[in-house]
Design a protein around this nucleic acid. Structure first.
Length: 522
DNA sequence: ATAGGGTTAG
């Protein structure tokens, strides 16, 4: 075997940087590094593991070829890839359709650059390449130019299912769910696959259309499409949002039946943890967490948050400590979970400590959600002055959520002076938000300021702000029903009367219970 | 002889 063949074989098997450097050294001393296919292989490897090194090597290649440019463009996306593209044009190396699809999908081109790329594509005759069309559609959609994307789509004589899916996603990301669905339905039936279903379902979920997402998933079950992990994760997140517990459990059972190994994969495990904890079931979530072979930062974060939202504050904090010892490095999302775990009146000190720790130890810049958690616990604990000081120290503009937490604290701890000021400000900041008026009037009510209560309610009514009413979900036979306070016209199949009969029955029983103080069975 | 697209959890 020739020495160059031998080196190529080694290069293809090599998995570690150490090994690669040995082969590299060998290639140099034997004069093999000047062969383009060898330096290209070396470059491709370094591009995956060490960017600086890849760049050094690239700058030492006297005449980089098309492959080298494509490799370096991928490696330096999204920030510097356009510069290599320009360098490529200057060196008179002709880009191919791969170059363009890489640039379009990885460099997140600005609109002017996108137009330039598009004209290059037309001039160089790459307009009928599926990969190019797909990424062009996505690129235009990313700029909100769905009409440009549609025009391009309609003008393309050839399109495969990836092109359709790309446009479906483009519509969904711009809030055009109905257009997306129409397009989805127009995909030729035998081409429609798990990825197109995944795109449509996650589009529904992103736009808050959870029921539609779940419904589409049921349609897919009837067809012969095998759902992939992303799709199942999207449906689970829809189930968590509307409390479709049975449907979520069905997915869990399906996953258990179909998984080839005994443990859960990252994406699915995380989605299951999120689903179970949002449905209030901590133990099943912990079992899933325990059955994940590798757990990344998302899995840990989901579990920490899951414990926190189920009032297991201490356990959440302990899990975080364990994560710091044996798990991956916490990130900004992890801290949302830990700070949420401090959402208890005794834990404001812990919250402040962790908040400081977040930037000092991990260099994470606080987002408005992080600030929100801290303000909430301070206000809840009656540390109203401290909460106000904290808000003033924020490096971002406080929003309605922040002021709302403070107002809630004022309500809980009878601070009418500040409550009055904050409430007045808040209803002007978010004039259409009914909950803010209600909270303000509650502040007045606790102090017996009845005229102010009525005035606030009237103010709200005059402005035409709809009253917020509490609601509750219940799942019956895999259909989720929503009930409002004083809901007198709920449509529960053909049994509305039945519902109210049971409700009255429960009411009577409760009354008996409060009189007798005995345990009763419903 | 080497490389690319549509879905993607917290």
């Amino acid at each position: 075997m020739s020495p160059s063949r031998c080196v190529v074989g080694l290069l293809e098997q090599c998995s570690s940087m150490r090994e690669m450097k040995q082969i590299h050294g060998h290639a140099i001393t034997h004069g093999l590094a000047r062969f383009a296919f060898i330096s290209s292989k070396l470059l491709a490897f370094y591009a995956r593991s060490d960017l600086r090194y890849a760049h050094t090597l690239f700058s030492h290649i006297p005449f980089p070829n098309l492959f080298d440019y494509n490799t370096i463009i991928t490696a330096f996306s999204p920030h510097y890839s356009s510069l290599f593209f320009i360098q490529m044009l200057n060196a008179a190396v002709s880009p191919n359709s791969r170059t363009f699809s890489l640039l379009l999908s990885k460099s997140s081109p600005s609109l002017p650059f996108l137009h330039q790329l598009h004209s290059h594509i037309i001039r160089r005759g790459h307009v009928s390449d599926f990969y190019v069309i797909t990424s062009l559609l996505a690129a235009y959609s990313n700029h909100g130019s769905t009409r440009a994307a549609r025009r391009l789509f309609d003008q393309s004589p050839y399109k495969n299912v990836a092109c359709w899916t790309s446009l479906v996603t483009g519509y969904c990301n711009n809030g055009l769910v109905n257009d997306a669905r129409n397009l989805f339905d127009a995909i030729p039936e035998r081409e429609r696959n798990d990825v197109s279903y995944s795109a449509m379902v996650s589009g529904y979920v992103k736009n808050g259309c959870f029921r539609e997402g779940i419904q589409l998933f049921r349609e897919l079950k009837d067809r012969n499409v095998k759902p992939n992990n992303s799709l199942l994760a999207s449906v689970l997140s829809a189930c968590a949002s509307v409390g479709a517990f049975e449907e979520g459990k069905w997915i869990h059972a399906y996953v258990d039946q179909n998984k080839s190994q005994c443990y859960y994969e990252l994406e699915l495990g995380t989605a299951l943890i999120d689903f179970y904890t949002k449905c209030g079931c901590v133990e099943p979530a912990q079992r899933v967490f325990g059955n994940m072979k590798t757990k990344d930062v998302a899995a840990w974060s989901a579990m920490v948050l899951g414990l926190a939202i189920n009032a297991k504050n201490q356990e959440a904090l302990e899990l975080f400590e364990e994560m710091e010892k044996v798990g991956p490095r916490p990130n900004a999302v992890t801290f949302i979970g830990v700070l949420t775990a401090c959402n208890h009146k005794d834990l404001f000190g812990e919250a402040l400590k962790l908040f400081g720790y977040m930037s000092d130890k991990y260099g994470i810049v606080a987002s408005i959600e992080h600030y929100g958690c801290v303000v909430d616990v301070l206000a809840r604990s009656g540390k109203i002055e401290e909460a106000l000081e904290f808000i003033k120290s924020m490096e971002v503009e406080p929003d309605g959520v922040i002021w709302g937490s403070l107002l809630n604290g004022c309500f809980l701890h009878n601070n009418i002076e500040l409550g009055h000021k904050v409430g007045k400000y808040l209803v002007e900041l978010e004039p259409g938000h009914g909950g803010r008026y209600v909270l303000l009037s509650n502040v007045y009510a606790t102090m017996g300021k009845w005229e102010a209560v009525l005035e606030t309610r009237k103010f709200m009514k005059d402005r035409g702000v709809p009253a917020v009413s509490g609601s509750s979900f219940i799942e019956i036979h895999q259909t989720v029903h929503k009930f409002l306070v004083h809901d007198n016209n709920h449509h529960c199949g053909s049994y509305p009367a039945e519902v109210y009969r049971v409700l009255n029955h429960l009411g009577n029983k409760l009354e008996d219970y409060s009189k007798s103080n005995e345990i009763i069975v419903f």
